[in-house]
Write a protein that binds this DNA or RNA. Structure first.
Length: 434
RNA sequence: UCCUCGGUAGCUCAAUGGUAGAGCAUUCGGCUGUUAACCGAAGGGUUCCAGGUUCGAGUCCUGGCCGAGGAGCCA
Protein backbone atom coordinates (compact mmCIF):
# COMPACT_ATOMS: atom_id res chain seq x y z
CA UNK A 1 0.00 0.00 0.00
CA UNK A 2 1.35 3.39 -1.02
CA UNK A 3 2.15 5.87 1.80
CA UNK A 4 -0.43 8.59 2.51
CA UNK A 5 0.93 11.97 1.48
CA UNK A 6 -0.43 15.50 1.73
CA UNK A 7 -0.68 17.33 -1.57
CA UNK A 8 1.60 20.13 -0.32
CA UNK A 9 4.32 17.49 0.09
CA UNK A 10 4.06 15.74 -3.30
CA UNK A 11 7.15 17.48 -4.70
CA UNK A 12 9.21 15.36 -2.28
CA UNK A 13 7.70 12.19 -3.72
CA UNK A 14 8.34 12.60 -7.44
CA UNK A 15 8.52 9.22 -9.14
CA UNK A 16 6.93 7.46 -6.17
CA UNK A 17 3.50 5.91 -5.77
CA UNK A 18 1.48 7.71 -3.07
CA UNK A 19 -1.98 7.78 -1.54
CA UNK A 20 -3.88 11.07 -1.61
CA UNK A 21 -6.98 11.42 0.57
CA UNK A 22 -9.28 14.29 -0.25
CA UNK A 23 -12.08 15.61 -2.40
CA UNK A 24 -12.78 16.03 -6.11
CA UNK A 25 -12.27 19.67 -7.06
CA UNK A 26 -13.08 19.36 -10.74
CA UNK A 27 -13.14 16.79 -13.53
CA UNK A 28 -12.38 17.28 -17.20
CA UNK A 29 -12.68 14.51 -19.74
CA UNK A 30 -11.20 14.13 -23.18
CA UNK A 31 -12.29 10.85 -24.67
CA UNK A 32 -10.10 8.15 -23.23
CA UNK A 33 -8.26 10.65 -21.00
CA UNK A 34 -9.58 11.90 -17.65
CA UNK A 35 -8.24 14.89 -15.72
CA UNK A 36 -9.66 14.87 -12.20
CA UNK A 37 -8.33 17.59 -9.88
CA UNK A 38 -8.07 16.63 -6.23
CA UNK A 39 -7.78 18.82 -3.14
CA UNK A 40 -7.02 17.73 0.40
CA UNK A 41 -6.94 20.98 2.35
CA UNK A 42 -3.22 21.48 1.77
CA UNK A 43 -3.33 22.03 -1.98
CA UNK A 44 -4.55 20.93 -5.38
CA UNK A 45 -3.15 18.29 -7.69
CA UNK A 46 -4.32 17.23 -11.13
CA UNK A 47 -4.72 13.55 -11.72
CA UNK A 48 -4.39 11.90 -15.09
CA UNK A 49 -6.15 8.65 -15.93
CA UNK A 50 -5.47 6.95 -19.26
CA UNK A 51 -8.04 4.35 -20.27
CA UNK A 52 -5.51 1.93 -21.69
CA UNK A 53 -3.36 2.06 -18.53
CA UNK A 54 -5.91 1.20 -15.85
CA UNK A 55 -8.75 -1.25 -15.31
CA UNK A 56 -12.11 -0.43 -16.94
CA UNK A 57 -13.76 -0.40 -13.50
CA UNK A 58 -11.39 2.26 -12.12
CA UNK A 59 -11.71 4.31 -15.34
CA UNK A 60 -15.52 4.31 -15.06
CA UNK A 61 -15.32 5.13 -11.35
CA UNK A 62 -13.20 8.20 -12.05
CA UNK A 63 -15.35 9.19 -15.04
CA UNK A 64 -18.48 9.23 -12.87
CA UNK A 65 -16.96 11.37 -10.07
CA UNK A 66 -18.89 14.44 -9.02
CA UNK A 67 -17.60 17.68 -7.53
CA UNK A 68 -16.61 17.38 -3.82
CA UNK A 69 -16.99 13.61 -3.70
CA UNK A 70 -14.56 12.25 -1.10
CA UNK A 71 -11.92 9.83 -2.39
CA UNK A 72 -8.72 7.93 -1.73
CA UNK A 73 -6.49 8.05 -4.79
CA UNK A 74 -3.42 6.01 -5.51
CA UNK A 75 -0.98 7.08 -8.18
CA UNK A 76 2.54 7.98 -9.14
CA UNK A 77 3.74 11.58 -8.73
CA UNK A 78 5.26 13.06 -11.86
CA UNK A 79 6.68 16.52 -12.53
CA UNK A 80 4.92 18.09 -15.51
CA UNK A 81 5.02 21.65 -16.79
CA UNK A 82 1.44 21.31 -18.07
CA UNK A 83 0.08 20.70 -14.56
CA UNK A 84 -1.15 23.74 -12.59
CA UNK A 85 0.97 22.89 -9.53
CA UNK A 86 4.00 21.62 -11.42
CA UNK A 87 3.25 18.01 -10.44
CA UNK A 88 0.52 15.64 -11.45
CA UNK A 89 -0.64 12.24 -10.39
CA UNK A 90 -0.83 9.26 -12.77
CA UNK A 91 -3.84 7.60 -11.18
CA UNK A 92 -3.65 3.84 -10.84
CA UNK A 93 -6.48 3.24 -8.39
CA UNK A 94 -9.27 5.22 -6.78
CA UNK A 95 -11.62 4.42 -3.92
CA UNK A 96 -14.78 6.48 -3.52
CA UNK A 97 -15.57 7.23 0.12
CA UNK A 98 -18.77 9.05 -0.77
CA UNK A 99 -20.02 10.08 -4.19
CA UNK A 100 -22.00 13.33 -4.12
CA UNK A 101 -25.28 12.36 -5.84
CA UNK A 102 -25.72 13.90 -9.28
CA UNK A 103 -29.34 14.85 -8.61
CA UNK A 104 -28.19 16.90 -5.61
CA UNK A 105 -24.87 18.27 -6.82
CA UNK A 106 -22.45 20.36 -4.77
CA UNK A 107 -23.99 23.84 -4.87
CA UNK A 108 -20.85 25.95 -5.25
CA UNK A 109 -19.69 25.52 -8.82
CA UNK A 110 -16.50 27.03 -10.25
CA UNK A 111 -18.60 29.89 -11.65
CA UNK A 112 -19.82 33.18 -10.22
CA UNK A 113 -22.11 33.29 -7.21
CA UNK A 114 -23.81 36.09 -5.32
CA UNK A 115 -23.04 37.22 -1.79
CA UNK A 116 -26.26 35.88 -0.27
CA UNK A 117 -25.89 32.45 -1.83
CA UNK A 118 -22.27 32.14 -0.73
CA UNK A 119 -23.04 33.33 2.80
CA UNK A 120 -25.90 30.82 3.07
CA UNK A 121 -23.40 28.12 2.10
CA UNK A 122 -20.53 29.48 4.21
CA UNK A 123 -19.89 26.00 5.63
CA UNK A 124 -19.11 24.79 2.11
CA UNK A 125 -17.69 28.05 0.77
CA UNK A 126 -14.77 27.65 3.21
CA UNK A 127 -13.49 24.83 0.99
CA UNK A 128 -12.73 27.16 -1.90
CA UNK A 129 -9.16 28.13 -2.67
CA UNK A 130 -9.71 31.78 -1.90
CA UNK A 131 -11.37 31.18 1.45
CA UNK A 132 -8.68 28.72 2.42
CA UNK A 133 -6.07 31.38 1.68
CA UNK A 134 -7.85 33.84 3.96
CA UNK A 135 -8.04 31.26 6.75
CA UNK A 136 -4.30 30.74 6.36
CA UNK A 137 -3.50 34.44 6.61
CA UNK A 138 -5.83 34.82 9.60
CA UNK A 139 -4.01 31.98 11.33
CA UNK A 140 -0.64 33.55 10.57
CA UNK A 141 -1.75 36.92 11.95
CA UNK A 142 -3.04 35.36 15.18
CA UNK A 143 0.13 33.32 15.58
CA UNK A 144 2.29 36.42 14.99
CA UNK A 145 0.32 38.32 17.62
CA UNK A 146 0.74 35.51 20.14
CA UNK A 147 4.44 35.16 19.39
CA UNK A 148 4.90 38.92 19.66
CA UNK A 149 3.52 39.16 23.18
CA UNK A 150 4.82 35.81 24.40
CA UNK A 151 8.30 36.78 23.25
CA UNK A 152 8.15 39.98 25.29
CA UNK A 153 7.22 38.44 28.60
CA UNK A 154 3.48 39.06 28.46
CA UNK A 155 1.20 36.62 30.27
CA UNK A 156 -2.01 35.58 28.54
CA UNK A 157 -4.84 36.10 31.03
CA UNK A 158 -8.27 35.11 29.75
CA UNK A 159 -11.05 37.56 30.50
CA UNK A 160 -14.70 36.58 30.95
CA UNK A 161 -17.31 36.56 28.21
CA UNK A 162 -20.30 36.89 30.57
CA UNK A 163 -20.06 40.28 32.23
CA UNK A 164 -22.29 42.11 34.71
CA UNK A 165 -21.94 45.49 33.02
CA UNK A 166 -20.70 47.43 30.06
CA UNK A 167 -17.21 48.68 29.47
CA UNK A 168 -18.44 51.61 27.47
CA UNK A 169 -22.20 51.91 27.92
CA UNK A 170 -25.05 49.42 27.67
CA UNK A 171 -26.74 50.39 24.43
CA UNK A 172 -24.63 48.11 22.27
CA UNK A 173 -24.56 45.04 24.52
CA UNK A 174 -26.15 41.68 23.93
CA UNK A 175 -28.23 40.89 26.99
CA UNK A 176 -28.59 37.28 28.13
CA UNK A 177 -30.45 35.59 30.95
CA UNK A 178 -28.08 34.50 33.67
CA UNK A 179 -30.25 32.41 35.97
CA UNK A 180 -32.26 35.04 37.86
CA UNK A 181 -30.34 38.06 36.70
CA UNK A 182 -29.14 39.78 33.55
CA UNK A 183 -25.71 39.37 32.09
CA UNK A 184 -24.12 40.82 29.00
CA UNK A 185 -21.74 39.39 26.44
CA UNK A 186 -18.43 41.19 26.74
CA UNK A 187 -17.56 43.96 24.33
CA UNK A 188 -13.95 44.15 25.56
CA UNK A 189 -11.61 42.49 28.03
CA UNK A 190 -10.20 45.93 28.83
CA UNK A 191 -11.33 46.38 32.42
CA UNK A 192 -10.29 42.89 33.47
CA UNK A 193 -6.97 43.37 31.73
CA UNK A 194 -6.26 46.24 34.11
CA UNK A 195 -6.73 43.90 37.07
CA UNK A 196 -4.47 41.35 35.40
CA UNK A 197 -1.80 43.98 34.68
CA UNK A 198 -1.52 44.66 38.41
CA UNK A 199 -0.98 40.95 38.92
CA UNK A 200 1.52 40.12 36.18
CA UNK A 201 2.74 43.49 34.90
CA UNK A 202 2.36 42.80 31.21
CA UNK A 203 -0.75 40.94 30.08
CA UNK A 204 -2.90 40.35 27.04
CA UNK A 205 -6.19 38.70 26.33
CA UNK A 206 -7.43 37.28 23.07
CA UNK A 207 -10.99 36.26 22.54
CA UNK A 208 -14.37 36.95 21.00
CA UNK A 209 -16.17 40.19 21.74
CA UNK A 210 -19.76 41.16 20.99
CA UNK A 211 -21.38 44.41 19.97
CA UNK A 212 -25.10 44.76 19.38
CA UNK A 213 -24.59 47.73 17.08
CA UNK A 214 -27.03 47.93 14.22
CA UNK A 215 -24.15 48.67 11.94
CA UNK A 216 -24.47 47.48 8.39
CA UNK A 217 -21.14 48.26 6.82
CA UNK A 218 -18.18 46.48 5.30
CA UNK A 219 -16.23 46.70 8.55
CA UNK A 220 -18.73 45.53 11.17
CA UNK A 221 -19.51 42.19 12.73
CA UNK A 222 -21.60 41.58 15.85
CA UNK A 223 -19.09 38.95 17.01
CA UNK A 224 -15.43 39.61 16.40
CA UNK A 225 -12.07 38.67 17.88
CA UNK A 226 -9.87 41.13 19.65
CA UNK A 227 -6.36 41.02 21.08
CA UNK A 228 -5.85 43.42 23.96
CA UNK A 229 -2.52 44.00 25.72
CA UNK A 230 -2.29 46.00 28.94
CA UNK A 231 1.00 47.15 30.47
CA UNK A 232 1.61 48.42 34.00
CA UNK A 233 3.39 51.79 34.12
CA UNK A 234 3.11 52.26 30.35
CA UNK A 235 2.54 55.76 29.04
CA UNK A 236 0.91 56.80 25.79
CA UNK A 237 4.18 56.71 23.86
CA UNK A 238 4.89 53.18 25.14
CA UNK A 239 1.45 52.09 23.92
CA UNK A 240 2.07 53.63 20.50
CA UNK A 241 5.42 51.88 20.13
CA UNK A 242 3.95 48.55 21.25
CA UNK A 243 1.13 48.86 18.73
CA UNK A 244 3.31 49.77 15.76
CA UNK A 245 5.88 47.07 16.53
CA UNK A 246 3.13 44.46 16.78
CA UNK A 247 1.59 45.46 13.46
CA UNK A 248 4.99 45.57 11.77
CA UNK A 249 5.70 42.03 12.95
CA UNK A 250 2.32 40.78 11.75
CA UNK A 251 2.91 42.13 8.25
CA UNK A 252 6.48 40.79 8.20
CA UNK A 253 5.32 37.30 9.18
CA UNK A 254 2.53 37.18 6.61
CA UNK A 255 4.91 38.33 3.90
CA UNK A 256 7.46 35.73 4.97
CA UNK A 257 5.16 32.74 5.39
CA UNK A 258 2.01 33.35 3.32
CA UNK A 259 3.18 34.51 -0.08
CA UNK A 260 1.15 31.86 -1.84
CA UNK A 261 -2.04 32.86 -0.05
CA UNK A 262 -1.47 36.55 -0.84
CA UNK A 263 -0.97 35.61 -4.49
CA UNK A 264 -4.20 33.61 -4.49
CA UNK A 265 -5.94 36.68 -3.09
CA UNK A 266 -4.25 38.85 -5.75
CA UNK A 267 -2.97 41.12 -2.99
CA UNK A 268 -0.56 43.86 -4.07
CA UNK A 269 2.33 42.86 -1.79
CA UNK A 270 4.39 45.94 -2.66
CA UNK A 271 1.94 47.91 -0.53
CA UNK A 272 2.55 45.55 2.42
CA UNK A 273 6.32 45.67 1.92
CA UNK A 274 6.19 49.39 2.71
CA UNK A 275 4.85 48.71 6.22
CA UNK A 276 8.10 49.34 8.12
CA UNK A 277 8.87 51.11 11.39
CA UNK A 278 8.29 53.78 12.46
CA UNK A 279 4.69 54.63 11.58
CA UNK A 280 3.62 58.27 11.18
CA UNK A 281 2.02 60.06 14.16
CA UNK A 282 -0.69 62.66 13.94
CA UNK A 283 -2.39 64.60 16.72
CA UNK A 284 -6.16 64.93 16.55
CA UNK A 285 -5.82 68.74 16.22
CA UNK A 286 -3.72 68.36 13.10
CA UNK A 287 -5.91 65.62 11.70
CA UNK A 288 -8.94 67.90 11.92
CA UNK A 289 -7.04 70.72 10.21
CA UNK A 290 -5.97 68.37 7.43
CA UNK A 291 -9.52 67.10 6.93
CA UNK A 292 -10.89 70.65 6.82
CA UNK A 293 -8.28 71.58 4.20
CA UNK A 294 -9.52 68.61 2.18
CA UNK A 295 -13.04 70.01 2.37
CA UNK A 296 -14.28 67.77 5.18
CA UNK A 297 -17.28 68.74 7.28
CA UNK A 298 -15.66 67.79 10.57
CA UNK A 299 -15.50 70.34 13.39
CA UNK A 300 -13.05 70.18 16.31
CA UNK A 301 -14.59 68.04 19.02
CA UNK A 302 -16.32 65.55 16.76
CA UNK A 303 -15.26 61.99 16.06
CA UNK A 304 -14.14 60.92 12.60
CA UNK A 305 -16.66 59.37 10.25
CA UNK A 306 -15.84 56.54 7.87
CA UNK A 307 -15.06 58.99 5.10
CA UNK A 308 -12.76 61.01 7.36
CA UNK A 309 -10.82 57.89 8.31
CA UNK A 310 -10.46 56.97 4.67
CA UNK A 311 -9.06 60.40 3.79
CA UNK A 312 -6.59 60.26 6.68
CA UNK A 313 -5.42 56.73 5.96
CA UNK A 314 -4.95 57.42 2.27
CA UNK A 315 -2.56 60.24 3.17
CA UNK A 316 0.11 57.69 4.17
CA UNK A 317 1.48 54.43 2.83
CA UNK A 318 1.76 53.10 6.39
CA UNK A 319 -0.72 52.87 9.23
CA UNK A 320 -1.03 56.22 10.99
CA UNK A 321 -1.30 56.72 14.76
CA UNK A 322 -3.78 59.45 15.64
CA UNK A 323 -3.45 60.66 19.24
CA UNK A 324 -4.92 63.14 21.72
CA UNK A 325 -8.63 63.05 20.80
CA UNK A 326 -11.06 65.21 22.74
CA UNK A 327 -11.97 63.30 25.90
CA UNK A 328 -15.76 63.29 25.34
CA UNK A 329 -15.54 61.13 22.21
CA UNK A 330 -13.53 58.47 24.03
CA UNK A 331 -14.32 55.95 26.78
CA UNK A 332 -14.68 57.04 30.41
CA UNK A 333 -11.51 55.26 31.54
CA UNK A 334 -9.13 57.22 29.30
CA UNK A 335 -6.53 59.33 31.12
CA UNK A 336 -6.61 63.09 30.48
CA UNK A 337 -3.62 64.93 29.05
CA UNK A 338 -2.10 66.81 32.04
CA UNK A 339 -1.21 69.74 29.79
CA UNK A 340 -4.64 69.96 28.15
CA UNK A 341 -7.18 68.12 30.28
CA UNK A 342 -9.82 68.38 27.56
CA UNK A 343 -7.79 65.84 25.58
CA UNK A 344 -7.46 62.09 26.21
CA UNK A 345 -4.12 60.30 26.16
CA UNK A 346 -5.39 57.91 23.56
CA UNK A 347 -4.35 56.51 20.21
CA UNK A 348 -6.16 55.07 17.22
CA UNK A 349 -4.28 53.31 14.45
CA UNK A 350 -5.78 53.73 11.00
CA UNK A 351 -4.74 51.14 8.44
CA UNK A 352 -3.75 52.38 4.97
CA UNK A 353 -5.75 52.00 1.73
CA UNK A 354 -8.92 53.20 3.43
CA UNK A 355 -9.26 50.24 5.79
CA UNK A 356 -9.88 52.51 8.76
CA UNK A 357 -9.41 51.97 12.47
CA UNK A 358 -7.77 48.68 13.41
CA UNK A 359 -6.45 49.65 16.85
CA UNK A 360 -7.78 51.80 19.67
CA UNK A 361 -6.11 52.34 23.01
CA UNK A 362 -4.23 54.67 25.30
CA UNK A 363 -3.32 55.49 28.84
CA UNK A 364 -5.90 54.66 31.52
CA UNK A 365 -7.25 56.86 34.24
CA UNK A 366 -5.48 55.93 37.50
CA UNK A 367 -6.87 58.56 39.88
CA UNK A 368 -9.67 57.20 42.09
CA UNK A 369 -11.66 60.40 42.46
CA UNK A 370 -11.54 61.32 38.81
CA UNK A 371 -12.54 57.81 37.75
CA UNK A 372 -15.48 57.84 40.17
CA UNK A 373 -16.53 61.19 38.77
CA UNK A 374 -16.39 59.86 35.20
CA UNK A 375 -18.46 56.79 36.11
CA UNK A 376 -21.14 59.01 37.65
CA UNK A 377 -20.97 61.41 34.73
CA UNK A 378 -21.59 58.55 32.32
CA UNK A 379 -24.54 57.33 34.46
CA UNK A 380 -22.89 53.94 34.85
CA UNK A 381 -23.97 51.75 37.81
CA UNK A 382 -21.34 52.36 40.47
CA UNK A 383 -21.98 49.04 42.22
CA UNK A 384 -20.84 46.97 39.27
CA UNK A 385 -17.65 49.03 39.01
CA UNK A 386 -16.66 48.67 42.67
CA UNK A 387 -14.12 46.02 41.80
CA UNK A 388 -12.72 48.28 39.09
CA UNK A 389 -12.44 51.14 41.56
CA UNK A 390 -10.57 48.77 43.89
CA UNK A 391 -7.75 48.81 41.37
CA UNK A 392 -7.40 52.53 42.23
CA UNK A 393 -7.84 51.98 45.97
CA UNK A 394 -5.10 49.41 46.35
CA UNK A 395 -1.87 50.62 44.80
CA UNK A 396 -3.16 52.49 41.80
CA UNK A 397 -0.67 52.66 38.99
CA UNK A 398 -0.32 54.36 35.63
CA UNK A 399 -0.95 51.87 32.83
CA UNK A 400 -2.05 51.61 29.27
CA UNK A 401 -2.84 49.26 26.45
CA UNK A 402 -4.85 48.84 23.29
CA UNK A 403 -7.21 46.53 21.43
CA UNK A 404 -6.86 45.32 17.85
CA UNK A 405 -9.77 43.86 15.94
CA UNK A 406 -8.43 40.77 14.22
CA UNK A 407 -10.95 40.82 11.39
CA UNK A 408 -10.16 44.36 10.30
CA UNK A 409 -6.47 43.54 10.36
CA UNK A 410 -7.10 40.44 8.24
CA UNK A 411 -9.27 42.42 5.81
CA UNK A 412 -6.53 45.01 5.35
CA UNK A 413 -3.64 42.56 4.97
CA UNK A 414 -5.62 40.33 2.58
CA UNK A 415 -7.00 43.35 0.70
CA UNK A 416 -10.61 42.22 1.13
CA UNK A 417 -13.55 44.52 0.46
CA UNK A 418 -15.59 43.23 3.43
CA UNK A 419 -14.82 41.73 6.88
CA UNK A 420 -17.40 38.98 6.37
CA UNK A 421 -14.77 36.82 4.64
CA UNK A 422 -12.16 37.27 7.37
CA UNK A 423 -13.86 35.08 9.98
CA UNK A 424 -14.97 31.48 9.35
CA UNK A 425 -18.59 32.00 10.38
CA UNK A 426 -19.47 35.71 10.45
CA UNK A 427 -22.17 37.06 12.70
CA UNK A 428 -23.72 40.21 11.34
CA UNK A 429 -26.80 42.35 11.69
CA UNK A 430 -28.85 40.12 9.40
CA UNK A 431 -26.78 36.96 9.50
CA UNK A 432 -26.83 34.31 12.22
CA UNK A 433 -26.65 31.21 10.01
CA UNK A 434 -24.96 28.87 9.33
C1' U B 1 -32.90 53.06 12.80
C1' C B 2 -32.65 55.96 8.07
C1' C B 3 -31.54 56.39 2.59
C1' U B 4 -30.77 53.76 -2.16
C1' C B 5 -31.01 49.32 -5.10
C1' G B 6 -32.59 44.37 -5.82
C1' G B 7 -35.57 39.30 -5.49
C1' U B 8 -37.15 35.19 -12.64
C1' A B 9 -34.43 27.46 -13.59
C1' G B 10 -29.70 24.56 -8.61
C1' C B 11 -26.24 29.20 -9.75
C1' U B 12 -25.26 34.03 -12.54
C1' C B 13 -28.44 36.87 -15.31
C1' A B 14 -31.94 38.36 -19.85
C1' A B 15 -37.05 39.22 -21.26
C1' U B 16 -41.56 47.37 -25.09
C1' G B 17 -47.76 45.37 -20.41
C1' G B 18 -48.66 40.35 -25.23
C1' U B 19 -45.85 32.33 -26.30
C1' A B 20 -40.71 32.89 -19.72
C1' G B 21 -34.98 32.59 -22.36
C1' A B 22 -29.29 32.13 -22.30
C1' G B 23 -24.61 30.58 -20.03
C1' C B 24 -22.94 27.42 -16.17
C1' A B 25 -24.54 23.05 -13.22
C1' U B 26 -27.19 18.01 -14.00
C1' U B 27 -28.17 13.64 -17.57
C1' C B 28 -26.80 11.32 -22.39
C1' G B 29 -23.33 11.27 -26.63
C1' G B 30 -18.26 12.80 -29.02
C1' C B 31 -12.96 13.81 -28.36
C1' U B 32 -5.55 10.62 -25.96
C1' G B 33 -3.14 16.73 -22.85
C1' U B 34 -7.48 19.23 -20.77
C1' U B 35 -6.40 24.23 -17.74
C1' A B 36 -13.54 27.88 -14.92
C1' A B 37 -11.69 22.63 -21.48
C1' C B 38 -14.45 22.19 -25.94
C1' C B 39 -18.60 20.25 -29.44
C1' G B 40 -23.82 18.12 -29.88
C1' A B 41 -28.54 16.85 -27.45
C1' A B 42 -32.09 16.46 -23.29
C1' G B 43 -34.55 17.41 -18.73
C1' G B 44 -35.31 21.55 -15.55
C1' G B 45 -40.11 27.47 -13.67
C1' U B 46 -45.87 28.67 -7.84
C1' U B 47 -41.10 34.83 -11.94
C1' C B 48 -40.31 36.10 -3.01
C1' C B 49 -45.56 36.53 -0.60
C1' A B 50 -50.63 38.87 -0.37
C1' G B 51 -53.83 42.10 -2.61
C1' G B 52 -55.02 45.57 -6.73
C1' U B 53 -55.18 47.93 -11.98
C1' U B 54 -55.81 45.62 -16.97
C1' C B 55 -58.79 41.93 -22.30
C1' G B 56 -53.86 40.38 -20.63
C1' A B 57 -48.82 41.43 -15.22
C1' G B 58 -42.17 38.70 -14.45
C1' U B 59 -43.05 43.86 -16.01
C1' C B 60 -47.54 48.87 -13.39
C1' C B 61 -49.71 50.16 -8.10
C1' U B 62 -50.16 49.12 -2.48
C1' G B 63 -48.50 46.36 1.71
C1' G B 64 -45.26 42.70 3.65
C1' C B 65 -40.87 39.38 3.78
C1' C B 66 -35.73 38.62 2.49
C1' G B 67 -31.03 40.44 0.80
C1' A B 68 -27.23 44.03 -0.91
C1' G B 69 -24.76 48.98 -0.92
C1' G B 70 -24.31 53.33 2.04
C1' A B 71 -25.15 56.63 6.61
C1' G B 72 -24.85 57.09 11.88
C1' C B 73 -21.79 54.23 15.77
C1' C B 74 -17.60 51.47 16.39
C1' A B 75 -12.59 47.47 16.36
Amino acid sequence: MAPAVEICQVSQHAGQEVLIQGWVYNLRTSGKLLFPIFRDGTGLIQGVAVKSAISPEVFERIKSLTQESSVKVTGKVRADQRAPGGFELDVSDLEVIQRVPADQPYPITPKDHGVEFLMDHRHLWLRSTRQRAILGVRHEIIKAVRDFFDGRGFTLVDTPIFTPAACEGTTTLFEVNYFDEKAYLTQSGQLYNEAAAAAVGKTYCFGPTFRAEKSKTRRHLTEFWMVEPEVAFAQLEDVCVLAEEMVALIVERVLANRRGELQTLERDVTKLEKITLPFPRLRYDDAVKYLQEKGGEIQWGGDFGGGDETILSERYEKPVLVTHYPAPVKAFYMAPDPERPELALCVDMLAPEGYGEIIGGGERLSDYNLLLHRIEEASLPKETFEWYLDLRRYGTFPHGGFGMGIERAVAWICGLPHVRETIPFPRMLYRLKP
